[in-house]
Design a protein around this nucleic acid. Structure first.
Lengths: 348, 348
DNA sequence: TTACCAACAGCAACCGTTTGCACAACTGAT
DNA sequence: ATCAGTTGTGCAAACGGTTGCTGTTGGTAA
């Protein structure tokens, strides 16, 4: 006998032939259609089992004009935040019988467009989308509009796009971070931010400045900078600390930034947190690995992924996304402060 | 005019109708079949462009009896090693026009089988597979055999399965780690290992013991232990260090283990590396984040992913995997020692 | 007996693309 | 004028499964 792998896959027709019935009868029997007698139904199911019958999803998708595939488009997949998001998405999607097709854009808007096209070609049931740094409204939008499937954005969103989104409290997190530092006694608070094109950068920067203003603290241009990588963040931190009037606290906008900044602060010879406090926004894994462990605002990637997937499934199954005047939903994921070793303790 | 998203997608038939030609002609024209005259070819392509025609891949797959989807089955997706592997796979697959469908098994053999089934149902062109801790040869094998597509295993493999695999030098890495510690002056070298069911654990443990024996060092049962999580690793490390004859060096088999072990060593009050050296095997990101930065053997996940994908594409496109007497390939990824702060320097 | 209805099964079209084959029209050689 | 050989195009089946409709039973009520 041939090895199984070289055998033709059993189809509905094979079952029908062996039983002398029509393929349609088999199809109906397998999905418990009441038109088929229980006896026949059992016979068909038994044979299907015996022949290891598995429906060809491609055929189903084609006929049904939609797959059970979800396209996941992200600028990056390895670093920090995204793996947990993906896990959140996966766990939720699996429960609803959808499968994920991964389409990383590597921070390239062109690749992003290509990925959206791939989604279209594969008749995905829905798209989960976090944009690259340099994606712009007009270009990305027109391609997305060609898709018949619902879209849910998360994390790195384009605010004006008429799709639902799951986001973190970026503005508010920065406010909280700064406020916490101030409460712990810091007076000159510096910030290191990511790519200034990204909306999350803008929001966190706004929050940062808003808090400083509100607290009556200095907020001059030499107290913040932008860094696109850990390496640049290290340079930024060094520059901030050699200022004539150096900060007594540093807020790092992301995991990536803290990785560069923390060694620079340590290298400057300052005691942490006494001479320089440090706080960052993180998914929650890295701060525990660093030394000293960094106080951070927990941005829960898993939760973001879970909620985005949940919302997408809801849209798919209700069909609501097709409605003309549906208003866009923004789902906020709460942030939590985790006090570790790089800040002075505050009585709250 | 309707929003694009609600319009029916253009098909080959639409183009054919508008031009008064046959769908088959359109199909051929779009793929530059020489039978179609250049003039008509141009006209068809122009219209296709204008109507935003995109082929329906499901139909193509169905007709072609195989998709351009690759199933990726891993026990885990967030932690340490896998994100880089996935990136390596992605980068390679994208270049060859394949797409990845992610099927995490969450360390469950049952889920693994389900995932293999999903691959079958979706007519994947190939499968990339890393097994869960508790997967067993017999059960997993029979399901895999039903698949018509080639399989490439990586990292966590089942040795006796007749599929190609990309693996790291597990035995050799452990030997190198121990040898390096010995050269740097350590005499009582302990090891903390992962789940003993996994082949990589067995190999690394064998290498560890082999090296100790070879170097004439102690290799008693109180010098190694198994830990299934960072938390357990912490307990393990603590136990090792409170031995009557404590080790002067610890080898941690994975990232996860070092996360637990390092704090325990620090907490014991020992100076690192003078009183206790530390070395681990890692994908290369985490050791730099820890304090002190941990000397490690670099196990390059990206490279594993890249090579696994490459090999799979080769099998798919050559069709070699169908050959009866094809011998199985094992591809080894080289390991590299990175000397950081937790070991005493060695003149090599 | 007739009329009607349920229960069950089959027919055939359809989803969008591909592809072997047939065939028409034209060319050029005989 | 005839025939073989191109060149360009169309026909129709196929991939595997789904589903609206039709048709055949057998049974029940009028």
């Amino acid at each position: 006998m041939l090895p199984l792998r070289l055998m033709k896959r059993t189809t509905i027709k094979d079952i029908a032939n062996q039983l002398g019935v029509n393929p349609s009868t088999v199809s109906r029997a397998l999905k418990d259609h009441p038109d088929i007698s229980p006896a026949l139904r059992r016979k068909i199911k038994e044979l299907a089992e015996r022949l290891h019958y598995r429906p060809n999803q491609m055929a189903v998708y084609l006929r049904q004009r939609s797959s059970r595939l979800i396209g996941l488009i992200t600028p990056e997949i390895t670093m920090f935040f995204y793996p947990s998001v993906i896990k959140g998405i996966q766990d939720n999607l699996h429960d609803h019988g959808y499968n994920l097709i991964m389409l990383p854009s590597n921070e390239s808007p062109e690749r992003e467009i290509e990925n959206i096209r791939i989604c279209a070609e594969n008749d995905v049931a829905g798209i989960l989308l976090a944009f690259s740094r340099n994606s712009r409204l007009s270009t990305q939008f027109s391609v997305l509009e060609e898709i018949g499937a619902p879209v849910v954005m998360f994390d790195k969103i384009l605010e004006d796009l008429p799709y639902d989104a799951v986001v973190l409290e970026d503005f508010q997190s920065a406010v909280e971070a700064v406020t916490y530092l101030a409460k712990s006694g810091c007076r000159r608070i510096a910030g290191i931010f990511g790519n200034p094109n990204m909306r999350i950068t803008q929001l966190r920067l706004e929050g940062f400045r808003h808090a400083l203003r509100h607290l009556g603290l200095a907020s001059s241009d030499d107290l913040f900078c932008f860094a696109d990588s850990a390496y640049e963040a290290e340079k930024c931190a060094r520059a901030l600390l050699t200022n004539p009037a150096p900060p007594d606290a540093i807020f790092a906008m992301t995991d990536e930034i803290i990785i560069g900044a923390l060694p620079a602060i340590a290298a400057s010879g300052r005691k942490i947190p006494e001479e320089c406090s440090v706080i960052c926004i993180s998914d929650g894994f890295l701060p525990y690995c660093l030394y000293p462990q960094v106080t951070f605002l927990h941005h829960d990637g898993y939760e973001v992924g879970r909620l985005a997937a949940q919302q997408l499934v809801r849209l798919i199954e209700s069909g609501d996304y097709k409605k003309e005047n549906r208003s866009v939903e923004r789902i906020m994921v709460k942030t939590q402060l985790i006090e570790l070793a790089t800040t002075r303790r505050v009585e709250l």
